[in-house]
Nucleic acid binder design. Structure first.
Lengths: 216, 216
DNA sequence: GCATTAAATGACTTGAAAGTCATTTATCAG
DNA sequence: CTGATAAATGACTTTCAAGTCATTTAATGC
């Protein structure tokens, strides 16, 4: 009759990722400063003291969250980039559609917003994001643009700026939706924007894949 | 002989803007949460208690800073927009160059970064920024694009998305420089980007002002 | 079973900064 | 010059959450 119900269990292995997942949720929902470690602990189903067995401080936990959130969704994008080796006209629409699908909802844009907000307080966080996300993506794109220029397929000009012309509107749209909400009359639909902007910018760069596409 | 040196003077009229200016500097340099009201008071040359004669709380002071920073630099941009009435091919390069000049350095990008970062904690701030900056700019551009489409000068498609294609890279570049620093190898030069992207996107939208421009 | 260990707890301590208020003092009216 | 007013001060109080640690208890080995 007497039920055995232990008050807690030892989970040395599973705890860290559980905590980071919980922290990502709470940080994404509230931002860094307003988030209380008690909230994270409660969501992770543990006590605050337990947090300190795995992370030395709130800051370190935040860093872990950023690293964790960044790690996953990047190999895929980068993979698509090197897969479409060379052909910018093929890559750009695929890349933007993929990003629209993966990043449309979820916690990555929220993370990005937080990194932007906390970049002054935690410069190392900005470096992590730069090296793992923004810089990496821009590197790949810039290289591809330069190669296409060498083949005479893309107009001259700074390939780094061309890279911004390609992904800038998308990044801006992501942040716009994150900050002002999808309810704003100006918030663009990500999939539609991926399609339309890809066509616009490719035309602007003079690749003209339009010939071999179906009628609009 | 005995110098008269009053410890302070009464400046009921001048104080508010002085305080807001000081607060903008400190907030821009440190971010919202890390900024101490003592720091703002010291920079404004007053005591902390005096702040509370003019602003009820740190939050309200922050709101005042955003409103103040937003108010100034917008009429100009919007003026340029309505001045070049209709002609998108003329407006876009001018608009981007103007923005590069006005926003390149200064506290507006820092403010933008803060609004992004604090938008979760202060949703009303995001609304202010939306209505006074982002939404306003997008409205003007979207209208102009739609008019140009009606005249058959711009390709079909959602004019709001076209507006993002125009200003998105610039917004992204501003934030990129603000977050990752101008030292990043990917940080674009704003003036160069304004020139090159304007040409790219206008070509993409099929306005083609290139004919009446000098050789590259 | 029994002793050992370390994972987990949560009440407590600490520190820092927002916000208060009794006092001081510049300014002004008469 | 004098008293009244309110702008300005800064030491003090309050608040709140990060971080600590003595204690509890699940798990493990003998």
């Amino acid at each position: 009759m007497t039920e055995i119900k232990p008050k807690w269990s030892r989970r040395k292995e599973a705890r860290p990722t559980e905590i980071v997942e919980a922290a990502m949720d709470v940080f994404a929902a509230q931002g860094f400063a307003p988030t209380k470690l008690d909230d994270i602990a409660k969501r992770a189903g543990i006590a605050k003291g337990t947090l300190y067995r795995y992370f030395d401080s709130k800051e370190e936990l935040f860093r872990a969250v950023v690293r964790h959130g960044v790690a996953a969704n990047l190999e895929e994008v980068e993979g698509a980039a090197v897969a479409a080796r060379g052909n910018l006209g093929d890559l750009v629409p695929v890349l933007l559609m993929l990003a629209a699908d993966r990043l449309g909802d979820g916690r990555i844009p929220a993370l990005a917003r937080m990194v932007v907000g906390e970049s002054r307080a935690f410069p190392d966080l900005a470096i992590i994001w730069h090296d793992a996300v923004a810089g990496r993506l821009l590197s790949v794109l810039t290289t591809l643009v330069a190669q296409a220029q060498a083949r005479g397929e893309v107009r001259p000009g700074d390939p780094g700026i061309h890279a911004f012309s390609i992904v800038g509107p998308f990044a801006a749209a992501l942040l716009f939706r994150e900050v002002f909400g999808a309810g704003s009359p100006h918030a663009p639909d990500l999939a539609a924007m991926a399609r339309q902007h890809a066509e616009t910018v490719l035309r602007g760069l003079e690749i003209l894949p339009a010939e071999r596409q179906r009628e609009g």
